[in-house]
C-alpha cells in the first residue's frame, strides 16, 4: 500500500504521469492514492523527486 508522507509533497504530478492505472488524484495542494485501483507497482515511489511516497506492507498498516 502506498503511503503519502505528511507535509512533504510539492504537487508536481510526476507520480500521476507514470502511474499505469490512473490511481493518483492530484489537486492544487492535495494528493490521494486511490487504493482500490492501485496495483502496488511502486513506480510512483521511485519517480518522486523528493521521496514523498513510500510502499508499506498492507498487513502492518492494517494492524
Amino acid at each position: 500500500m502506498i503511503h503519502v508522507k505528511d507535509n512533504k509533497c510539492d504537487f508536481c504530478g510526476t507520480c500521476v504521469a507514470v502511474c499505469p492505472v490512473d490511481a493518483i488524484e492530484l489537486r492544487e495542494a492535495d494528493i490521494r492514492i486511490i487504493h482500490e485501483t492501485c496495483i502496488d507497482c511502486d513506480i510512483c515511489v521511485w519517480v518522486c523527486p523528493i521521496d514523498v511516497l513510500e510502499s508499506q506492507d498492507a498487513q502492518v498498516s492494517n494492524d
Binding site: 500521476v16 504521469a17 507514470v18 518522486c48 523527486p49
Partner: peptide, 26 residues
C-alpha cells in the same frame, strides 16, 4: 493539463509515461 494530465485517460487514451521516458526533476 501538463505532465500530470488525466484528461486523455478520461477519454480512454493511453497517456501513462514510461519510467524510461520520465525525468524526475528538482
Amino acid at each position: 493539463d501538463g505532465v500530470e494530465s488525466r484528461v486523455g485517460r478520461m477519454a480512454g487514451l493511453r497517456t501513462a509515461l514510461k519510467l524510461s521516458d520520465t525525468g524526475s526533476g528538482y
